[in-house]
Every structure is written in structure tokens, then in C-alpha cells.
Design a protein around this nucleic acid. Structure first.
Lengths: 340, 340
DNA sequence: CGTTGGCACTCACTCGTTCGGAGTGCCAAT
DNA sequence: ATTGGCACTCCGAACGAGTGAGTGCCAACG
């Protein structure tokens, strides 16, 4: 099947480009990877992949480079879990086991993560006192426009305007309000976010699409609200390896690293258990960081996501390896928190 | 007097080079600065300055660039105090006045300092619990070689080997030991350092040169010992302006910024009151930071130096402006600590 | 229909080479 | 001691030709 081979070609392009940092051409591709076809065939495939927006050429008659969309597909479908080597596992555990207190755990995590991935590592300090959701209010401004108000136990109020994908009558609105509050009220914001997401994913929920957009706004408001939480940053020296594209990439990133609020937003809401979130290039919330990706995951005792940890790096990065490292570190940190 | 003009030429070279970032030639010099002589004369002066090691040319038939020694002379003798503008003063005070607690003061200081100087700012957290000197021991290993042992109240012991500039008999050694201990024992390390320096500078002290080298070793050991103290760093994004000389300059600096121990050592021992310390290029303790300078000063209530604050930047920097900014910020911070 | 070899075309890059200009050092004159 | 003049150096921009990796397209093939 040729569709399959096309994906193999995309995978090969991503891998080669990440390794060499140079646009990759059809000939080099068939040589380096054992796909048993000729370069002409590969060229056809590449043309198709380019039409679909997965790759692009910097200029005519140069090799191809993956686009954000290409990386996305690669990460979603082409990546095989690359387990950490025994040596790496041992390094992580011995390094983290030496920690004396919670702060030390975080500091060591940042360090080990940045060394493992050779990227800039960011670890959110786990906070024990967390605000809970007091109430969620939904106000219909127009048939397809909703004001979402999130009221927290700290007294803080966050608002979001939501454009709905469909109209919603008063009755349905009241029902939605009830459902949302039942899911969220009283819970600490992280649990509330999880519950809300469950609501949006539950096939039994009526008005799924509308619910989804409301939930999205709420979760985003919750992320914004974490502004008082702290993060540790490490491995900024790895930015020196960027080499090319300096002012365009490193400068905004250095600026972001000093703004902890920005970093928290970048990490996003913690995902549970083993799920690693990857945000590629322009998918993120900041234009200036269009050429950087974020690989993050939640961590905490009992696999309950307590806080977030991850790395920030160029879109051109070794995703499988990085994801494995992030997951591994999160797991070890979680285990330590379990014991302590 | 031609000696005077030479210094004027050096000053002009430093100012122009800092402003333009390019080697400065004789012709441009007479045009831009109103020194009433011809370019040929300036050329002669420049040749002399080069012989003395104050300036150098990157290659034959290029303009001149100041050396570390040139900057040193500039800072020591050619710099006139450049007062902060009223607007700048106001900016500092209003910004710092908003601080709610000590941590906030430090964070805001870092920020205002990095913005004012457009350099990387470093501020040491003031620590209230400070270890004191329990005892200083001097052991003669050879007539001109001494082992200096510093014992602190925390139980920590630091040692230094000192090569003496002259021989020292047993009697003189005992006298020196007594003097040093009288000055240092019982005092917190900062006060001890001050007292020791006073001892070395006092013309009544016998064996001045020997005393000086012993004191130097002791003060350095004290600085090393501060390893448990904390610092705040800000303005790393300003590193992006380095542009040229990237791997050689920015990378080691980024690494240093993550090692707080290194940073503390870089800042050096706090100097009292209005004195601003400038360490230029290779004068510092780290080879890798040979092209960076440090401008620092002490701060604390009642002008008693409590902790250190300053900036790190390229040797090619606006020293007068930077020194003024560092001093101004230190002063305001001290005042706030006085009130709080 | 997918695959393949062939072929003409494109364009970034790498070199030598040239050339101008900024800068220097030296010298003789003042 | 200062100055104008002059020959010399050498960096860096500009130019051009050659190279080669890479592409797109087409006709042929199984």
C-alpha cells in the first residue's frame, strides 16, 4: 500500500532532518533508510506529502523539511515508544534519590531532565494549598455567544467569552449549567479540569460540541489562574546550541523563561498518568515561540497529576527520545513523592 | 602636556568602541571628538598606547580596540560620575517601593537593574543568619610557604596555601597569627573580611606585603564559604544582544548563571557603602568568562554591606552608566531595608 | 496503475578574483 | 612636538563561474 510508504517516507524525513539539521533530499533518503524503492518514487511521495502540507522546501531545488503539521503527524502516529536505557534509568533514580526535601526534588528534576534531553527543562513546584471551584456561571449574551464566569474559593473571578458552534435555548443552558457545576464545584481546580474534560468526552453528554467549547474556556481560565505558582528552570545553556536563527528563536525564549506566568501557561494543564503532551510550534499560545515546541506531562503521588513538568526546545527535536525522558522523570518523581 | 592628551585619546577610543562596537581609527577619532590635533598626532599617541598595552588592533591596518588593561585605566582614572537622570531615579524608587516583602524587593531589584543596564543582573539574597569566624590558624610549611586555615562557627573548615613574597620567622609568624585572630575571631564573615582588609591597608602593620597575601587568601576562603546563600538572576534575554562571539562568550555565561555558587564567587565579597567594584575580563576567577566584566557593590541597611548585587556583561560595556545604575539601585534597596 | 530511469532545469553554495577604502607607519618639513 | 604627505597593508564587499544536490516531468515498463 502506497499510503503506508508515504508515512514511512515522512518518518524518515523527520528522523534525518532532526539528526542532520539539513533539508533532506530523495536520494539521500533511499540510501540511508532501506525503503526498497527508487528515488523517483520517493520524489513522487514527497510531492504528495508537500501538497498535503506535511513537508515543505526552503527554496526550490532544495531538500524537504517537516512542517509543524508534519511533526504533529509524526508524533501522533509514527512514533514508537523508545524505552530509556538501563543506564539512563539508573542515572535518574540515583540522582533523584539523593534529594533531601521537596524543593531539592524539584531542583534535581530540572537538572536531570535538562541533561537527559539537552533542552531547557521546566518543572512546576507542586503546591499543596490549591484553590477550589466555588461556582461556574454561564450567561447567554446572544444565541451563540456565552459568557463563562469561573469563581474560585480564593475569591478570584475569571471570565471568558465563548462563541458557540450552535445555538442554545434557555432550557438547555440551564441543564448545561447544572451539569458543569455538578462536575466542577467544590473540587480543586485540577480535579475540576479533569472532571470537566470527562464530561466533554462522555458520549452521553448532550450538546457535546457546545459543552466542549465551554469546557475548553474553563480549563484555560484555570490554567491562567495558577499565576501564583512557582517553577524551576534549568539547562538554559542548551540554548547555545541553537546556532542559527538566533534573534528569532532564542531571544523570545530567554524572555519567556523569566516570566514564570508565561512558562506555566506554556506547560499547560497537567495531564494524568503516562500521557505526555506535545505542543508543536505555532500550536502554542505565543506567536513569538512559533519555532519552539513543548513536551510536558503531569506528575504527583498516586499518578494523580499534581503539577507539571517538561521541556522547551526547537520544533526540530528528537521527539521520541524527549518524550521518553520526560515520562521517565515524571514517573520517578511521582514515585518519590509517593514514598515521602 | 602630551601625557594628558594620550589619556584623552584612550577615553575617546573606549567611548567610541563601546558605542559603535567597531575598532576605531585615528581619523574617525579626531572628527567625532574635538581634540584639536591632527590624525597623525593621534596615530602617534595610539602607537604609544599600544606599546603600553592599553589598546590593540585586531589585525594590521584596522582600528584599535581597548584591552582589559585599557578598560581598567579608563574605569580607574578617566571615568566621571554620571548621575542618574531624574526620570531614572523616579523609575527605580517607584518600582522598588511597590515591594511587599524581602523576596519581592530582591526580585524587583533584579528586574529594575537588568532593565536599567540592559545587562544580566544578579542580586544576592540578604541572609540574616551568618556564620562567624571561630579561629584562624597559620602553619609554616616552609620559610616562604604558609598554610592558612579558616575555622567557622558552623564547623566548616576552609584551607588555603599561600606563597609568601618574603620569608617569615617563627616570631613574626606568631605575631601575625595574633593580629589576624584579633581582627577576625568572633566576627561574622563579612565584618571579619572588612577588618582584615583594614589590617592589610594599615601602614602601621608590620610585614605589610605578607599580611596582604594572607588576608587575600582568607577573604577568598570566606567568599567560597558562602555556598549556601541564594541569588536571583534576571535579564538573561539581554544576552541575545551579544550577537557576535556566541559560543565563546554566551554559552559559558549561561552555564555560570545556573551555578549560583559560581555567581556568588563572581560577585565577590561585598564592598561597603558607595564603592562599586569593577572586575574586567580575565581579572575574574574564571577563564571561560575572560570576555565578561562584573560590576558589583554591597547593599544593606545603614550602608553596612549585607549582601552583594551587580551585573555581568561583556567587557565592552558602558562602564560609567552601568556603575551609576548599580550604585543607584544599591542605594535605594539599602534605604528600603532601612525602613523595613 | 504504480514504479522507474532519464533528462533538463533551478538555485544555493563555494571558490577565486578583483577592487575600494579605511587604516597604518614612516618621514621630512615646520 | 606636531603635521601633511605618501606608500603600503589588508579586510570585506562584490562579482562571476562552476559545482552539485535536488527537483519536476515524461515516457516506458511490469
Amino acid at each position: 500500500m502506497q499510503e503506508e510508504r508515504r508515512l514511512a517516507v515522512l518518518r524518515a524525513i523527520v528522523e534525518d532532518y532532526v539528526a542532520t539539521e539539513e533539508p533532506v533530499g530523495s536520494k539521500a533518503l533511499v540510501e540511508r533508510h532501506g525503503l526498497g524503492v527508487s528515488s523517483a518514487t520517493v520524489r513522487n511521495d514527497m510531492a504528495a506529502l508537500e501538497d498535503e502540507g506535511y513537508i515543505t522546501q526552503p527554496h526550490t531545488s532544495a531538500g524537504r523539511v517537516p512542517t509543524d503539521k508534519g511533526y504533529r503527524l509524526f508524533v501522533d502516529r509514527l512514533t514508537t515508544v523508545k524505552p530509556m536505557s538501563a543506564a539512563e534509568k539508573r542515572a535518574i533514580s540515583t540522582f533523584l534519590d539523593g534529594a533531601v526535601d521537596l524543593d531539592d526534588v524539584v531542583q534535581r528534576s530540572v537538572r536531570v531532565l535538562s541533561q537527559l534531553t539537552r533542552q531547557v527543562a521546566v518543572v512546576q513546584y507542586p503546591t499543596l494549598s490549591r484553590s477550589t471551584v466555588r461556582h461556574v456561571e454561564l450567561v447567554a449574551l446572544a444565541p451563540e455567544r456565552l459568557l463563562v464566569v469561573l469563581i474560585l474559593s480564593t475569591g478570584r473571578v475569571e471570565q471568558r467569552l465563548v462563541e458557540l458552534p450552535a445555538t442554545l435555548d434557555d432550557e438547555a443552558l440551564a441543564a448545561l449549567r447544572t451539569r458543569v457545576n455538578r462536575a466542577a464545584t467544590g473540587a480543586v481546580i485540577h480535579d475540576a479540569a479533569t472532571a470537566l474534560r470527562g464530561l466533554a468526552d462522555d458520549p452521553d453528554t448532550p450538546d457535546r460540541e457546545i459543552t466542549r467549547s465551554v469546557v475548553e474556556a474553563l480549563v484555560e481560565a484555570m490554567v491562567d489562574h495558577r499565576s501564583d505558582e512557582r517553577v524551576a528552570v534549568g539547562g538554559a545553556a542548551n540554548l547555545a546550541r541553537y546556532g542559527d536563527s538566533f534573534d528569532s528563536a532564542v531571544r523570545p525564549l530567554l524572555e519567556a523563561l523569566e516570566e514564570h506566568v508565561v512558562l506555566l501557561k506554556l506547560l499547560g494543564e497537567a495531564t494524568d498518568g503516562g500521557t505526555v503532551t506535545v505542543r508543536i510550534g505555532a500550536e502554542g499560545p505565543y506567536e513569538q515561540l512559533a519555532s519552539t515546541s513543548v513536551v510536558a506531562t503531569g506528575y504527583g503521588p498516586r499518578d494523580e497529576a499534581f503539577a507539571t513538568l517538561g521541556i522547551v526546545g526547537p520544533t526540530r527535536m528528537d521527539y521520541p527520545g524527549t518524550m521518553a525522558a520526560v515520562r521517565a522523570v515524571a514517573r520517578y518523581v511521582s514515585r518519590i513523592l509517593d514514598e515521602g
